[in-house]
Simulated assay, not measured.
Amino acid sequence: MTSHHTGRIRTDIAHNARVWNHWLRGKDNYPVDRAVGDRVTSLHPGIGEVARADRAFLGRAVTYLAAEAGIRQFLDIGTGLPTADNTHEVAQRAAPDARIVYVDNDPIVLTHARALLTGTPQGATEYVDADAHDPQAILAAAGRTLDLARPVAVMMLGILNFVLDTDEARRIVRTLMAAVPSGSHLVLTHPTADPELGGEDNVAAMEFWNANATPPITARTRAEFTSFLEGLEVLEPGVVSCSLWRPGPGQPPPVVAQFGAVARKP
């Protein structure tokens, strides 16, 4: 089996960061990722649209936070493989002195991120190898680049769905938000099987994913998603399909089965 391992990189089993990259029409993926990604697409034809809607939501949320809310520090957990308009690029376009810490625990992401994620000279862009299941380790590492006494935007886009226990997922969010001051923000997206967002396709797609790829994934209901925001002020328009969070002018975007929200710590 050694031929499949490059350090911790497995090329014989599909991995979330690389499959997501394939859906975003990127090049940083292996045949196994494309095969699993295409099979998921056959079960859930809108999944590429979800991936692109999630990226577009990230852009709008980070632009709002940097340009309007005055946020200069971003902790992006579960960042995935770099594509266009990563958090630091969006933030530093609005605020060149913005500081960004990316967190992921996938070695292939680590390699690409260190090579590609270079920000403005007046800001900072750092990469931390840590697991979302260990928020204390994330905070300890992030504190070397970010001032946790000043407001931070904690970003968890499509990452809590890999924390299978909802109580544990809630604890992770609470631990992170307890460590940052008033004026900090939480930015979340999460897949759902709720019919209100057309999430029925997610059920078969996730079952297939969990049998054929890593890490395992779960959908959550509106109520479960909303529970992650307890104690925070949820900004307008509230908990919506991430494609409908403050969309730009023009055609209303298609609804995707991915909740999105931005909330402020009072």
Rank of each mutant, 00 (worst) to 15 (best):
G7Y: 05
I108P: 00
V36I: 15
H133C: 04
L139D: 00
E224A: 14
T189M: 04
F57Q: 03
R55Y: 12
Q92V: 11
M1W: 06
A261S: 09
A261H: 11
D165N: 14
P121Y: 07
R10N: 11
G26V: 11
W20C: 12
P121E: 14
H5N: 09
N29G: 09
A213V: 06
T226H: 07
V180P: 05
E207A: 14
D28S: 15
A61H: 11
V163F: 03
S241P: 10
Q136I: 02
H44W: 15
L24Y: 06
G78W: 12
P249I: 09
A213W: 07
V163H: 02
H22P: 03
H5E: 13
P249F: 03
G26H: 11
T120H: 14
G238V: 14
V163P: 07
A204P: 04
A204K: 08
G123L: 04
T221C: 04
G48L: 01
R264H: 13
T118Y: 01
H22C: 08
R171N: 07
T120K: 08
A130F: 07
I100K: 05
S243Y: 03
E49M: 13
T226M: 02
G143M: 00
G199Y: 06
P252C: 04
L81C: 03
F208C: 05
R144K: 15
I159P: 01
G26Q: 08
P216E: 13
F57T: 07
P31R: 06
E168K: 14
M177Y: 08
F225Q: 05
T6Y: 12
A51T: 03
Y127P: 00
R144C: 00
R55I: 07
D38V: 02
V152M: 02
T221G: 05
P31K: 07
L160S: 03
D194Y: 03
P96Y: 10
V239N: 04
D104I: 06
A140Q: 03
T41V: 11
L24A: 13
F208W: 10
A140F: 00
A84S: 13
T189R: 11
R170Q: 13
T218P: 01
I47A: 01
P195F: 02
E49A: 15
D201S: 13
L160E: 02
T125W: 02
H112I: 01
E230M: 01
A263C: 06
A124H: 11
